[in-house]
Nucleic acid binder design. Structure first.
Length: 285
DNA sequence: GGACAGGTGCGGT
DNA sequence: ACCGCACCTGTC
């Protein structure tokens, strides 16, 4: 895939490695909207407008921060290579998933935003998570004119349990209060320097962070692709295509052993695939 | 109404 | 270590 960076835009040639719907709808990111045939993506205090031109096989990203979004969309990584390597496993359902969601990419998101987004995600669905984050940004984030920035730590730590409850966090309000308290001493940035095993251990010390959320933060925030977040959907997939196993920790470990540093990519293709199949099934009924 | 959702912490073994 | 259970809240 080739791209050209200009003052206020990035032009991407080759949609086989960049499909904005596949990128945004695979569950890794929550702040985006679709207006007038264009996608708008928000990251921390920045925004980008993405428009695809299928007939010309190109996409145009308009933004005041092209450098930031080249990194955010990980445009210097070849997904053609990743897909080739994943296909070497000769798993039909994985190959089908890759063919269906060919233009998917794992975003390099801000660690703080990822952390708190996935702290909300426990026992929760994407739509609800998006609404909570929207309200959270409006309440605690900086007003940027056309949108609200994701809250900063200093802003969020002024929040009370009642305020978080009012935003619809439910029992996760407690996760926020306690985790923000812990975070006054340990910063997320410092964890970057540790081994992946220790990062996971440290992440799980925060209240409300279990293995699944930790794996998501590792994959989407620290870009450690040797992570395979296992939720109900991956569990279903594993039981259907691999073997019967109900312990999600075991499933995750087995899949990381199989896919190595391609785990995160395999997870995204498979997750999207199994969820799409499931929602098609429920529409038929 | 009641079951369920993209998990986690807690209290039992 | 390994289970089973309760849990806010919106949606079907």
């Amino acid at each position: 895939m080739r791209y050209i960076k200009e003052d206020n835009k990035i032009i991407i040639y080759g949609l086989e490695e960049f499909n904005i719907e596949h990128i945004l709808l695979c569950g890794q990111v929550f702040r985006f909207t679709f207006i007038d045939n264009k996608w708008i993506v928000y990251s921390v205090d920045k925004m980008a407008v993405i428009e695809e031109f299928k007939e010309e096989n190109k996409a145009v990203i308009t933004t005041e921060n092209p450098d930031y979004f080249v990194d955010y969309f990980d445009l210097n990584t070849s997904y053609t290579l990743i897909k080739e390597n994943l296909k070497k496993f000769n798993l039909k359902f994985l190959n089908d998933a890759i063919d269906s969601f060919y233009g998917l990419r794992i975003l390099k998101q801000d660690i703080f935003e990822v952390f708190f987004s996935f702290l909300i995600s426990s026992n929760n669905n994407i739509k609800k998570i998006q609404k909570i984050i929207e309200r959270l940004s409006k309440k605690f984030g900086e007003n940027k004119g056309s949108f609200y920035a994701f809250p900063t730590f200093n802003s969020l730590r002024t929040g009370t349990q009642q305020q978080f409850l009012d935003l619809g966090l439910g029992y996760r309000a407690d996760y926020f209060v306690k985790t923000l308290k812990i975070m006054e001493k340990n910063s997320l940035q410092n964890l970057r320097l540790l081994s992946s095993q220790n990062i996971k251990k440290e992440l799980m010390k925060y209240y409300g962070v279990g293995e699944k959320v930790a794996d998501c933060v590792m994959l989407f925030g620290y870009n450690l692709s040797q992570s395979f977040p296992c939720d109900v959907w991956i569990e279903k997939m594993y039981n259907e295509y691999f073997e019967k196993e109900t312990n999600r920790s075991v499933i995750s470990k087995n899949l990381v052993n199989l896919f190595g540093n391609l785990s995160g990519y395999a997870q995204q293709y498979l997750f999207f695939h199994i969820r799409t199949i499931q929602s098609q099934k429920s529409k038929q009924i």
